[in-house]
């Protein structure tokens, strides 16, 4: 029979498994041979009905859930994460106690304590800075469009201080800049806010040299309120404050 050799390959043709040249030749043949085209059609129809009939069973929802649970990656709390969680709990307790305590104190004290909280909370965060750079010409422009004022950062060459980066911060719903510096493994925060946006007129004289064991300095300059806070020595805080003041007065 003329079609014998074609028929032998009909299944392979319908399965799309013939080499491309043979496939083309088969296509041409099928278009001109009614017997082979009818046979090919029947096999395609058979494939379809088997496909429909073959999709017969569906797993139970509970079995699917059980399986999903069994292969889902188990949350592995790293040592670092455990410490961070512990720090967060401590922070929460400290924050709650501080909040309760703050209610009884003056507006000035409240602002100073909130600055201390911001400093601690940021350092406890897994990503303390949003812009990571020691280059002041990178960090300063990052704040453009994010805060409603501009400020200058000090040149730190030939000093022991290093800029780690910056982030946006809020004090009483007022946006401000938060810069983090490093000096001999101590982290120091510099906060800059608009003076008029702060909740209370600050009494700088009421600032005790140590707040929650942090050293802090604050001053107003060019309509901006600066806070420098950290667990470094009061002398280091003072040196950094002077550098920031000098940069802002240029």
């Amino acid at each position: 029979m003329v079609c014998e050799s074609w028929k032998a390959k009909l299944d392979t043709y319908v399965d799309g498994e013939l080499p491309s040249e043979e496939m083309r030749a088969f296509d041409t043949h099928v278009h001109s041979c009614s017997s082979c085209s009818a046979d090919a059609l029947r096999r395609v129809q058979m494939r379809r009905v088997i496909q429909v009939a073959g999709k017969r069973f569906t797993p139970r929802a509970e079995f699917r859930k059980r399986m999903q649970q069994s292969i889902a990656p188990k949350p592995q709390r790293s040592f670092r994460l455990r410490w961070m969680l512990a720090a967060a709990v401590v922070m929460l307790v400290v924050g709650t106690l501080t909040s309760a305590y703050l209610g009884k104190r003056s507006g000035t004290d409240q602002v100073f304590s909130e600055i201390a909280d911001l400093h601690v909370a940021t350092l406890a965060s897994s990503s303390p800075v949003d812009v990571i750079s020691s280059d002041r010409h990178t960090v300063k422009p990052w704040f453009q469009g994010k805060i409603p004022f501009a400020f200058d950062l000090p040149e730190l060459q030939n000093s022991e201080f290093a800029l780690l980066g910056g982030r946006m911060t809020y004090l009483d719903q007022t946006p401000g800049a938060h810069l983090i510096y490093d000096v001999r493994k101590h982290h120091i925060s510099v906060f800059v806010f608009q003076e008029r946006s702060l909740p209370a007129k600050l009494d700088e004289n009421s600032l005790s040299p140590k707040k929650l064991s942090f050293s802090m300095e604050t001053w107003s300059q060019g309509g901006l309120r600066y806070f420098v806070i950290g667990d470094a020595s009061a002398a280091d805080i003072d040196v950094l404050a002077k550098l920031v003041k000098a940069a802002s007065s240029i």
């Binding site: 029979m1 079609c3 014998e4 028929k7 032998a8 009909l10 009614s34 017997s35 009818a38 046979d39 029947r42 096999r43 129809q45 058979m46 379809r48 009905v49 088997i50 429909v52 009939a53 073959g54 017969r56």
Partner: peptide
């Protein structure tokens, strides 16, 4: 061997016409 005869009523056409899924499933 190749099946050469052209059949009018083949298992395929009958199955398609009747959508006899259960029969096919039992044969599979």
């Amino acid at each position: 061997g190749p099946e050469l005869a052209v059949e009018r009523d083949t298992p395929e056409t009958i199955l398609v016409e009747r959508s006899n899924r259960e029969l096919l499933q039992s044969v599979i």
